[in-house]
Nucleic acid binder design. Structure first.
Length: 431
DNA sequence: TCTGGGGTCCTAGGACCC
DNA sequence: TCTGGGGTCCTAGGACCC
């Protein structure tokens, strides 16, 4: 693309990221929690996955197990919540719809982040002024605070966003279009904070004397490719302001569907594991149908606690390729049941299990052989009826194999109401 | 006692083909 | 005694992301 003077148009990306998203959601309908430290826990109330500003200041680290910060929680009167995905998902959709109304194109990157394409906008308005207006509008319309990072590549936009959050003087908006500013920020950013550099590669880079993002950006991309990977080569180029990652407006179709859980209490007997595996298969099948796919590959895994010093470790998986893809819960339950009996061993204390569906086909795209069994014509209608009933909120139908609720079910002791998605949880305001 | 869940992409190596 | 070159596909495992 070129502008009217024949100069190539430089792409401009913005990354908008919600501040302490889950913690902000929990506080939105609880004004009494303003100023009080808030944390949100992972499934099973296991680890800390979100912290309000105040909680961060107390030194509560990300992903730390709950029991390790119990003392701080009690001493400092920290408000603790289980994950409430119904609430976060709904508020996320609200934030995204505001962003969508304010930018020509956007990519929803995760539950609390979106990339926007602002190419060409700098000719109409100052980019940072636009960022501030966007931030204000999201806050006014949803009550959620966001940070905005603007730059010529996604990786730099990520970095700008980090800076917007780290340095309050920025007001939560950083425009990194200027190469001099880019260099300055890269110079004070440790290499492992760059998007796409994880712990492992961070260590390897450090060992090679590459300690800052600036040093990484100055590496020869070909050398990086040889020593590391093409992915990291792309990161180097992106850090130099060369955009290699495009905006993905429609997310590519999923290639697998996974449902796995850690149990609240260890499972030691086969019937309990069987009902857990059946429940995960049923849930995975539900997701599969939501995505309008049929799966041919079925994998299950079971494992004990890898952290345990005292219990023996066991981890095993098994998979099967079906003759024809299916989205019928009954077929999947039959399959996982057979797989489970092949890997189950008595005498272990199991901590986690899961069901994975892969080799996914859109309807009507699989070519069966002459002798493949056809799916019964009533299957799709039956599954539709099942999904409709279970979505109606009037009750739930499940398969016998799933059993009734048991002690191993996920622990969510500190769950807040589904304020925005369930009528009976609607907050009431009294004058 | 107590450590989440759900994804993607890349690479190396083996099997196989002509 | 001598034993090519080029390619595809599949899988397991590693690394990364939020």
């Amino acid at each position: 693309m070129a502008d009217l003077n024949g100069e190539p148009v430089r792409p401009v990306f913005a990354l908008v990221d919600c501040n302490n998203f889950y913690a902000s959601c929990e506080r939105l309908f609880r004004p009494d929690l303003r100023g009080r430290p808030v944390i949100v826990l992972s499934n099973n109330d296991g680890c800390v996955v979100a912290r309000s500003k105040e909680a961060k200041q107390l030194g509560i680290k990300m992903a730390v197990p709950l029991y390790q910060v119990q003392e701080i929680i009690e001493r400092e009167n920290v408000a603790v919540f289980s994950s409430n995905y119904a609430l976060y998902g709904d508020l996320s959709a609200r934030v995204m719809s505001v962003l969508e109304s304010q930018a020509p194109t956007l990519e929803v990157y995760s539950i609390d982040e979106a990339f926007l394409d602002l190419t060409g906008l700098e000719y109409c308005d100052s980019l940072s002024r636009y960022g501030s207006a966007l931030q204000q509008r999201v806050f006014n319309w949803t009550g959620i605070g966001v940070g905005v990072g603007i730059a010529p590549s996604k990786t730099l936009a990520k970095l700008a966003n980090h800076a917007a959050k780290r340095y309050p003087a920025t007001g939560g908006v950083v425009d990194l279009s200027d190469p001099v500013r880019q260099q300055r920020l890269l110079n004070i950013t440790p290499v492992q904070e760059v998007w796409g550099v994880g712990r492992r590669q961070g260590k390897r880079l450090q060992a090679a004397g590459i300690k800052t993002a600036l040093q990484l950006s100055q590496c020869d991309p070909r050398w990086i490719r040889m020593q590391f990977s093409v992915t990291l080569e792309r990161t180097v180029r992106e850090l130099c302001g060369q955009s290699c990652l495009a905006l993905e407006q429609c997310p590519p179709p999923r290639q697998q569907v996974l449902c796995s859980r850690t149990f609240a209490q260890r499972i030691t007997d086969y019937p309990a594991m069987h009902s857990a595996i059946c429940q995960y298969a049923a849930r995975a099948a539900e997701k599969l149908r939501q995505q309008d796919r049929s799966a041919r590959g079925v994998t299950i895994f079971i494992r004990t606690n890898p952290h345990s010093q005292t219990d023996p470790y066991y981890s095993e998986s098994a998979c099967r390729q079906l003759a024809v893809p299916t989205q019928d819960t009954r077929t999947l339950i039959r399959t996982v049941t057979a797989l489970l009996s092949s890997i189950w061993r008595d005498g272990y204390r199991y901590m986690k299990a899961g069901v994975m569906l892969s080799d996914l086909y859109p309807p009507g795209t699989f070519q069966p052989t002459l002798f493949d069994p056809a799916e019964s014509p009533s299957s799709a209608r039956l599954m539709q009826a099942l999904d409709r009933i279970n979505a109606s909120g009037k009750g739930r139908i499940w398969f016998a194999g799933e059993g009734k609720c048991d002690g191993w079910q996920m622990k969510r002791n500190k769950l807040s109401p589904a304020y925005t998605t369930r009528w009976k949880d609607l907050p009431v305001v009294r004058a």
